[in-house]
Deep mutational scan, measured.
Amino acid sequence: MQGVVKVNSALNMRSGPGSNYGVIGTLRNNDKVEIIKEVDGWYEIRFNGKVGYASKSYITIVN
């Protein structure tokens, strides 16, 4: 499943599904990501070869 990031500035990509996990990357508005699965309001995603987590509130699913 594919998604597009929708933010005003930047979205942190984290090592786990929560804001208490470390930041491993930064996503920008309109970045395209691969959604692997949903975990407690977060998406596990793949972006630029990295796998991490981002809040699903800021990612819109596209077909």
Rank of each mutant, 00 (worst) to 15 (best):
G16R: 02
E38C: 05
K56H: 07
V51D: 11
N63H: 09
V23Q: 07
A54P: 00
Y21G: 03
S57K: 11
G3Q: 03
S15N: 13
V5T: 04
N12T: 13
N63T: 15
I36V: 10
G41C: 05
I61Q: 07
M13R: 00
G49W: 05
R28S: 15
V62S: 12
V33C: 04
T60N: 13
N12P: 14
K37C: 05
N12G: 10
I36G: 04
I35P: 01
S55W: 08
K6A: 13
G49R: 08
G18C: 03
W42S: 02
I45C: 04
P17T: 02
I59F: 05
V33F: 06
I45R: 00
V62T: 12
M1S: 13
V39R: 06
P17D: 01
N8K: 11
V39G: 04
V7I: 11
S15K: 09
K37N: 11
G18W: 01
N48R: 08
G52Y: 03
G3E: 02
N20L: 07
V5W: 00
I24W: 02
A10D: 15
I61S: 06
E38I: 09
T26G: 04
Y53W: 13
W42P: 00
K50E: 13
R14Y: 15
V51R: 06
N48T: 10
K50R: 10
Q2C: 04
F47P: 00
S9N: 13
E38T: 07
K56P: 07
Y58K: 07
N12D: 15
Y21T: 06
W42V: 02
G18R: 02
S19C: 07
M1N: 12
L27D: 00
N12Q: 10
R28Q: 13
K32V: 15
Y43H: 02
T60Y: 12
Y58C: 05
V51P: 07
K50N: 14
V4S: 07
D40Q: 08
N29C: 04
R46L: 15
N30E: 13
S9F: 13
A10V: 13
V33M: 05
K37W: 07
G41P: 07
F47W: 07
V4Y: 04
N29T: 09
I35K: 01
G49E: 14
L11R: 07
D40N: 13
Y53N: 01
I59G: 01
K37S: 14
N8R: 08
E38Q: 08
K56C: 04
G25H: 10
G49V: 06
E34D: 11
K37L: 12
R28W: 13
K32W: 13
F47Q: 06
M1L: 11
N20E: 13
Q2E: 15
R46F: 15
A10Y: 11
R28K: 14
V23E: 07
N12I: 12
M13Q: 03
N30T: 08
V51T: 14
N12M: 08
S15F: 06
I61Y: 06
V62W: 08
K56A: 11
K32H: 15
V7H: 13
V7E: 05
K6G: 08
N20Q: 12
V51I: 12
I61M: 09
E44V: 05
R46C: 05
G16E: 03
E34W: 05
S15E: 12
F47L: 08
R28A: 13
K32G: 07
D31K: 03
M13E: 01
V7T: 11
Y21W: 12
D40S: 09
G3H: 03
S57W: 09
N12W: 07
K6M: 07
I24Y: 02
S55R: 12
V39C: 04
I24F: 02
N63D: 13
R14P: 01
G3S: 03
M13P: 03
G16C: 03
T60L: 15
V5A: 05
N29Q: 10
V62I: 10
Y43D: 00
T60F: 15
D31W: 04
N48K: 14
R28P: 03
G41D: 12
V62E: 12
G41I: 09
D31E: 11
M13L: 10
R14Q: 09
N29Y: 09
G3K: 03
L27H: 00
V23I: 14
D40R: 06
D40T: 09
M1H: 14
D31N: 06
G22S: 12
V23P: 08
V51N: 15
A10P: 15
Q2L: 12
I45Y: 00
I35R: 00
N29F: 10
T26I: 14
I35T: 02
V23R: 06
V5L: 03
E44G: 05
N29W: 08
L27F: 03
I59H: 00
S19K: 10
E44C: 04
Y58N: 14
N63P: 13
S19W: 10
V4T: 10
N48A: 10
Q2Y: 11
S19R: 11
G22L: 14
G22H: 13
G22E: 15
R14T: 11
V39M: 11
P17A: 06
N48F: 11
M13I: 10
Y43Q: 01
G49I: 05
K50Y: 09
P17Q: 02
W42D: 02
N29V: 05
V62L: 14
V33N: 00
N29M: 08
G18L: 01
N48G: 09
Y53K: 00
S19H: 15
I59Q: 00
V7D: 06
W42K: 00
A10G: 13
T26V: 12
M13W: 08
I24R: 03
G25E: 11
M1D: 12
N63C: 06
E44S: 04
G3N: 02
N48V: 09
V5H: 01
P17E: 01
I24Q: 04
Y53H: 03
Y43K: 01
V7M: 05
P17W: 01
I36A: 05
I45S: 01
V62D: 15
F47R: 05
V23D: 05
S9K: 10
M13H: 03
S15Q: 09
I35F: 04
L11G: 07
W42C: 02
N63W: 02
Y43S: 01
G18V: 00
K6H: 11
K56N: 09
R46Q: 15
Y43P: 00
S9L: 12
G18S: 06
S55K: 12
G3T: 03
G52C: 03
R46G: 11
E38N: 04
M1E: 13
V51M: 11
G49Y: 05
N20T: 08
V5M: 02
V5K: 01
N8H: 14
G49T: 10
N12K: 10
N8D: 15
Y43V: 05
I45L: 11
M1A: 14
N29P: 08
